[in-house]
Write a protein that binds this DNA or RNA. Structure first.
Lengths: 198, 198
DNA sequence: AGAAGATACGAGCTTTTACTCGTGTTTTGC
DNA sequence: GCAAAACACGAGTAAAAGCTCGTATCTTCT
């Protein structure tokens, strides 16, 4: 790994932008590295000067997504104490930014919302999963402090799974119906999370 | 398409069996037609005597799955009037056979439980989706006859989506923990479906 | 029995795709 | 100013995978 110049950092960012677009259009598997290079306006050789292989591109893109998502979520909870908010508000403040983030970054779900991950991708996506899990767990902990850690983790995992499942439905819905589908997603989460524990 | 002899029908069944195993092990994309042929103990040439291409194999396998699943579901509801059953029982009788089917046929989820379908696969999987949607809709209709058709369809779709999302979690869980994960899945569905409509 | 057609084989063709490498240009450090 | 290093190019390589084709055997039907 050579020392990067400003020009190089910029190229890397351009390549990741392009990768996001190509992943969004074709999915990870069908996205070709040459297509990403072309989309970035760069030769294949240059692409491989910055990224060792296709998985490395996915990993770098995932890393960037993690950062951006954390910032969005922190902004949404800014100045509010989770334990004083009720469930609908808490769900709004957690779901809305992630949803908005997905609408703004269509490439995200190609790395995130898939039950079966190829080996390379799984490693790249793991930080996203871990980051999200931590955030949801902290929200649940705020509302139900007495819940054992095991149950909390399981509940968070299930909630994330539900969210992942419905993401494609939300993104595939025509803009006019989107609010209704989003409401349905929140309804599922609310009914699952707000019900009394077993 | 030539007229099949008994030998040919048997070979086709063997190839589909093999395809199920290979899809289960590698997923649809990474499964190679040569690997399927080898698993079936057949040459690549023979494979293409029965199936025009890889998508056709998936389509045939999907067709077989639809039939088997319908039979399993009908058996589970045998002699019971859905409208007289309560939600937990109804969920049990719908979810259990599909879950058992998935455990017995690991290749099924490679064709079914994926939010992003390649073009060819989407066509092959569509009958499965349609069949399942119809079954779930009829169950919902039995319990909530007054629900408008639109809402019923949307609710059924969401329920199926939830099920698909949690399927990998269930199948990935160690056999010891599987009952707990299954219970969690049913809990989500119960809370979603049994709550008063908006 | 004999012809026609179905089944079977597997080497190899074609296309695709991740990735390389030789060469040339721009930037940096001294 | 000059060498070293980073950046850039794009034709080319090697491997993988879907699929074909010539040939040979087995079944069926008359």
């Amino acid at each position: 790994m050579p020392k990067r110049q400003a020009r190089g950092e910029q190229r890397m960012a351009e390549i990741l932008d392009a990768a996001g677009r190509v992943f969004a259009a074709s999915g990870y598997e069908k996205a070709t590295t040459n297509a990403i290079a072309a989309e970035a306006g760069v030769s294949p050789g240059s692409l491989y000067q910055f990224f060792a292989n296709k998985d490395a591109i996915a990993a770098a893109l995932a890393g960037r997504f993690v950062t951006q998502m954390r910032e969005a979520h922190e902004a949404a909870l800014l100045g509010a104490d989770p334990s004083t908010l009720d469930w609908p508000e808490l769900i709004d403040r957690t779901v809305d930014p992630i949803l908005a983030f997905n609408v703004a970054n269509p490439g995200f779900k190609a790395l995130f919302a898939r039950p079966d991950m190829p080996a390379g991708l799984a490693a790249a996506a793991e930080p996203i999963q871990a980051a999200l899990l931590g955030r949801v767990e902290s929200v649940i902990a705020a509302k139900a402090p007495s819940l054992p850690a095991d149950d909390r983790t399981r509940t968070a995992r299930v909630a994330i799974q539900i969210f992942q499942a419905m993401l494609p439905m939300v993104l595939a819905s025509p803009p006019g119906e989107r609010p209704a589908v989003m409401a349905e997603l929140k309804k599922v989460l609310y009914r699952y999370l707000s019900a009394p524990s077993p």
